[in-house]
Design a protein around this nucleic acid. Structure first.
Lengths: 217, 217
DNA sequence: TAATTTTATTAGGCATGCCTAATTTTAATT
DNA sequence: AATTAAAATTAGGCATGCCTAATAAAATTA
């Protein structure tokens, strides 16, 4: 069996894999878990011994099939519990995450499946994230224009609906491209432009017109 | 904040208090938690420092008001989750305990209250145990004849509906009296007599007639 | 009461998972 | 290429919560 802490590492690495982070390093994991790179290295060794991931300095960390399976199960539980908290207990969008963070670690053979059934087999959680099914398969991802994404949600740019040189240059200057990871920080009241954060780096404003042309998932 | 382990100690001491155990000792706690008396003593020191209980060799362990409050909250959560698992997820009587044992430690300000509301403010859990309300008050306890108690449930003798010398002598020989703690182990098919365990000590058979006259809670 | 058995307690250890402070490696700048 | 900055790694420590073995205290039994 794996500990709560181990599960959190697997989940962090899984989520960075999904985000398309090119190299998952001790530092990037430590940032996500808000702990120390030295601690991360200890744990990478341990998880590597357990064959749940591979790690080397050059390639970074990568989940094995076994490790991926565990991570997907946790994500599945997390998102199902979020649906439960929101739909059944009436929690708000913002409150569910922290509680689900605890609930995702509850272990019991068919708990996730029963919860899934009880909730009517939802395919997306309240944040719009896809819920893996009992075999770990994710539903087809929805593409949405950035203009329809909620504040605080982290998304990845998957398409752009305007190939004019002007627009592409605009994106380029803002350092936005395919696979950019974006988090919406604020929506300006006066003109509906978005303040977005680019994967921890800088923050830029996007006009409402631009945000309708940028598709994310 | 208190750790998961601390919560389990408080709960164990609380449950022994309810059972009317006269003196709650390191050994009795270690038995309940399936660990070692030496470990218990470490923890009793810690919880005592935190003013969650008092402990001395002569009087044993006793929860302070503060400690009791925490224990009651955990019991409340445990029993509410049991109701949820049984009624909403369709688990059976026997399966719910282990899962609730994990769920009871989920922390969030008003989670218990929301769950309580969602479940329609139940007053008893699937085992027939009373669920403390949001102020920690227990509903009036139900008295039931021993014959109606499920296998595996631990109950306390609170009344006997026959004061004839014969019957009392019968009870005496079996070492059953007021406040005896009884767990039903088996029900014999051929004559419906009960095999009951007396607080970890011996096991005796009770006739179906006797079990109807012994009231427990 | 003395001997025996059962508890309580202390001491020393261990695994887990985190930390800080070096040190080494790698990457970025000049 | 040389310097500087950033990241990775190692070493040593610490708190938590458990353990076993040894000892002290208490309760039983002879």
């Amino acid at each position: 069996m794996h500990s709560l802490s181990e599960e959190n590492y697997l989940k962090a690495i899984y989520s960075q894999t999904k985000e398309g982070v090119s190299k998952i390093t001790p530092t990037s994991i430590a940032e996500e878990l808000r702990n120390n790179p030295a601690s991360v290295i200890d744990m990478l060794k341990k998880l590597s011994d357990k064959k749940l991931l591979s790690y080397d300095k050059v390639k970074g960390a990568k989940l094995t099939e076994k490790g991926n399976k565990i991570a997907v199960e946790i994500v599945r539980k997390h998102r199902l519990w979020e649906v439960f908290l929101l739909e059944k207990l009436g929690y708000s969008w913002g409150e569910v995450h922290d509680i689900a963070e605890q609930l995702e670690h509850i272990r019991h053979e068919d708990l996730a499946d029963r919860l899934d059934k009880f909730l009517g087999y939802p395919t997306y959680d309240p944040h719009g994230d896809p819920i893996p099914d009992k075999n770990g398969k994710l539903p087809a991802t929805k593409w949405l224009p950035l203009s329809e994404i909620a504040i605080g949600k982290k998304v990845k740019v998957v398409n752009v609906d305007d190939n004019s040189p002007d627009f592409l240059k605009y994106l380029d200057r803002q350092e936005i491209g395919l696979n950019s990871i974006i988090t919406i920080r604020e929506i300006q009241n006066f003109d509906k432009s978005l303040l977005v954060e680019l994967k921890g780096k800088k923050e830029v404003y996007l006009s409402p017109e631009a945000s309708k042309k940028i598709f994310v998932e």
